[in-house]
Amino acid sequence: MSLPRSNYDPRRVCLNPFPDLHLGKYRRTVGVYLAGALFAIGNFVFFDAAVYSAHARVPWGVDPPVHVTFVDWVPGICSILGYLVVNLIDKDRIKGDEGFGDSRAVWRARLFLFIGFALMAGGLAGSVTVLVLKYVLSDYAEMFKYYGYANVTQNLLLMISAAFLWMAQSTSGEYEYNLTL
């Protein structure tokens, strides 16, 4: 099966292109607000689990067998650091546009971008590891497994939020003009 010549682009990787969302002149604003909402929801879910853990009472009158500890916080801290690193990088340096003077600036910017995404991926992998090792394999009641599910949810929403914010910041704004001489 071949594509019609009118739709063929030799730079395409996938056969079916990503759907084009036309949000008009507000697409940048919508992307930033959506990224902020995902960031807030992800952190709220984990903070809810931490507060719930601090005030948990088991119906049969003994202390709960597990609490949210520092080990549960480490993946979220890694993801937030990665989030900051990724979104503080100048997007023009990643593209390799000339005009920065330093030829190594593009390489350094791409290295920091990789480190930021590696921190977020490490945070997500760490949260899954904590979920499995601390909550699932220990065979706690379902109410205690919520702490691990909240940790994974936080890190997943932080990664999705970073992707939305990256795409929103890469689009041209309503008041931006590209002038060339």
Rank of each mutant, 00 (worst) to 15 (best):
K95Y: 14
A50Y: 06
P75H: 06
D63V: 15
A109C: 05
D97R: 14
L21P: 12
N178W: 12
V51H: 08
W60E: 10
L111K: 11
Y146N: 06
L88V: 15
Y8L: 05
Y26Q: 14
L88I: 15
F47C: 03
D92G: 09
F112P: 11
L131V: 02
V68M: 02
L165T: 06
S161L: 07
M120T: 01
T69Q: 13
L84N: 12
A50I: 08
P17E: 08
S53R: 04
D63C: 10
A141V: 12
L137T: 06
A40L: 14
V66F: 04
Y140N: 04
V66W: 10
V32Q: 07
P75G: 10
A54N: 05
L84P: 08
G61M: 02
A37T: 09
G148S: 04
Y33P: 00
G173E: 04
M1R: 07
S127M: 10
C14T: 15
R108W: 14
N16I: 15
W166I: 05
P4I: 11
Q169A: 14
A118K: 05
R28L: 01
A163G: 13
L34Y: 02
I94H: 10
D139G: 12
A49K: 02
F39K: 01
D48F: 04
Y135V: 05
F47Q: 01
L38E: 00
A163E: 13
R57Y: 10
A162E: 02
L113V: 10
F164P: 03
N7D: 13
R27I: 03
F46T: 01
V74Y: 02
Y135T: 00
P4A: 09
G122Q: 07
L158Q: 04
V62H: 15
R5E: 13
Y52Q: 12
T69W: 14
M120F: 10
M159V: 08
G82P: 02
D90Y: 08
A162G: 03
S6M: 09
V130T: 07
T69M: 15
S79R: 01
R11W: 10
I160M: 06
F164E: 08
V58H: 11
I80N: 07
L84T: 13
Y33S: 10
F46M: 04
R104P: 03
M159W: 05
L131G: 01
Y83Q: 05
S103M: 09
V106W: 08
R27H: 11
L157P: 00
S79M: 03
L133I: 12
Y8P: 02
S138I: 06
F39H: 03
E142P: 04
T29P: 04
V71G: 07
F144W: 04
M1A: 09
N155G: 03
L156A: 13
S138M: 11
L81P: 00
N155E: 01
N43T: 04
L21E: 10
D72V: 01
I77F: 05
I115F: 08
D90L: 09
F39A: 03
F100Y: 11
V51S: 09
L179E: 14
K134D: 11
L21H: 14
F114D: 06
N7M: 12
L21M: 12
